[in-house]
């Protein structure tokens, strides 16, 4: 993020900004641990959030998990952690254990979902979650309950018809919805230029008569402010907002991909100069709200959380094969 000034006239909640930084670091470190476990042969699959933490945490912390809902996608580790899912819960899912709250070990890792924390279960076919989010928001409107829904997707997913269908439906019915596109420039190997003919996904908002906002993902405060404004608009009954966060993807698509075959040389290095975790730490430091001592303490705390989650999940039992047939249909017994 650039060395931006604080928003004029708005009081700054420094504690909230530090919380933001904590979740960004936790997301990064938990994600790094997943890769280690994968390379150790302890987990079959990883899909990463690295490079998108600022966008993810910035949105999630601008929301109210007690009334709001989210429909995340598979890169949204930072979103779900900041929205209330714990590192242990994430690790249970990552290692496909019985007590994985997202799916009991049924889904691939990072397919988050947890009713108690207002996180809707998601699938692998992309963009279906955006119409679900519009539906969650529709229920809020019809039931006249407070709250908004935020839906998350990558820029490649905006090529799907349901991106359009959901935004159109939500804008026609003025639903309390925020659609957050985390634009990391790639859909597996396909770069944005082969995905769409516009520079900004947010430009498409005009087709729905709604605001489209572009923010830099390495500037979580900007993401946060954009989300607060979008949320207030939604709560006023004025309809959805499209937020596009420009982010980076620091890993291959997944642990089964090798991005050296399609990423131009040097691109990743250039993007690392805009690392959201580093940029935000520098920004906090510039404002003399952060120092080496705090950094050391934070890293120690995060390390403990990640270690604890890993140990806990590694020791946890797998699902019993006898449960294979459970939950196909509703049953009061199981």
């Amino acid at each position: 993020m650039a060395q931006r000034e604080l928003l004029s006239g708005q009081p700054v909640d420094w504690q909230k900004l530090k919380t933001m930084y904590y979740y960004m670091v936790l997301s990064r470190k938990l994600d790094e641990r997943m890769w280690i476990l994968n390379r150790q042969g302890k987990a079959a699959f990883v899909i990463s959030c690295q490079g998108q933490e600022g966008a993810q945490v910035g949105v999630a912390l601008a929301m109210d998990p007690s009334v709001d809902w989210i429909t995340p996608y598979y890169r949204d580790l930072g979103v779900v952690l900041a929205f209330g899912m714990t590192a242990r819960e994430v690790m249970l899912g990552f290692l496909a254990k019985r007590d994985d709250p997202s799916s009991g070990g049924r889904q691939m890792p990072s397919h988050y979902g947890l009713r108690a924390k207002h996180i809707l279960t998601g699938s692998s076919p992309v963009t279906t979650q955006v119409t679900h989010a519009a539906g969650l928001a529709l229920a809020m409107k019809v039931r006249k309950v407070p709250g908004i829904t935020a839906s998350f997707l990558g820029e490649g997913s905006t090529s799907q018809g349901e991106f359009h269908e959901a935004l159109n439906f939500a804008s026609v019915h003025k639903l309390p919805l925020i659609v957050v596109v985390e634009n990391n420039g790639y859909a597996i190997s396909v770069p944005q230029a082969h995905q769409m003919s516009v520079i900004n996904v947010a430009d498409r908002a005009s087709g729905y008569g709604i605001p489209g906002v572009v923010v830099q993902g390495s500037d979580p405060l900007a993401v946060y402010e954009a989300t607060v404004a979008a949320r207030e608009r939604a709560l006023r009954g004025e309809g959805p907002t499209l937020i596009e966060a420009k982010t980076h993807r620091y890993t291959p698509h997944s642990s089964d991909d090798d991005d050296r075959s399609y990423r131009p040389e040097g691109e990743l290095l250039r993007e690392k100069a805009d690392d959201p975790v580093v940029m935000f730490r520098n920004w906090l430091t510039t404002y003399q709200k952060w120092d080496d001592q705090q950094e050391t303490a934070l890293l120690k705390r995060v390390r403990e959380v990640v270690d604890d989650a890993t140990d806990y999940a590694e020791k946890a039992p797998y699902p019993d094969p006898s449960t294979l047939l459970d939950h196909v249909y509703y049953s009061p017994q199981v």
Binding site: T71, H132, A134, G135, L138, A139, A166
Partner: peptide, 14 residues
């Protein structure tokens, strides 16, 4: 797809 997708979200949310 939007009719059914939104109906799923609405069904989940009460």
């Amino acid at each position: 797809a939007a009719i059914i997708g939104t109906a799923i979200g609405a069904a989940v949310n009460g």
